[in-house]
């Protein structure tokens, strides 16, 4: 399987950004972004979808952590 060309990459990244923006605007309610999710999935290789989903989780966590809102979970012994 050939790697996506620059054009294909840009189409994929565009679909990803649209989907991520939708999630942002709908307070992370994925059910309201299904159409964009479909477009995202059809524009990118499957492996990239998995990668970008994980990447968004990470970026969200990073955002929260840097804003000082992240509370580390208490260890099982204490709870």
């Amino acid at each position: 399987m050939a790697a996506p060309s620059m054009k294909e990459r840009q189409v994929c990244w565009g679909a990803r950004d649209d989907y991520w923006r939708c999630l942002e605007e709908s307070a992370e309610d994925a059910s309201r972004c299904q159409q964009l999710r479909k477009s995202f999935e059809s524009s990118c290789p499957q492996q990239w979808i998995k990668y970008f989903d994980k990447r968004r989780d990470y970026l969200k966590f990073k955002e929260k952590f840097e804003a000082g809102q992240f509370q580390p979970s208490k260890s099982p012994a204490n709870s």
Partner: peptide
Amino acid sequence: FTHCPDICP
């Protein structure tokens, strides 16, 4: 690598 999703490009 050429199949790199975002960082390499």
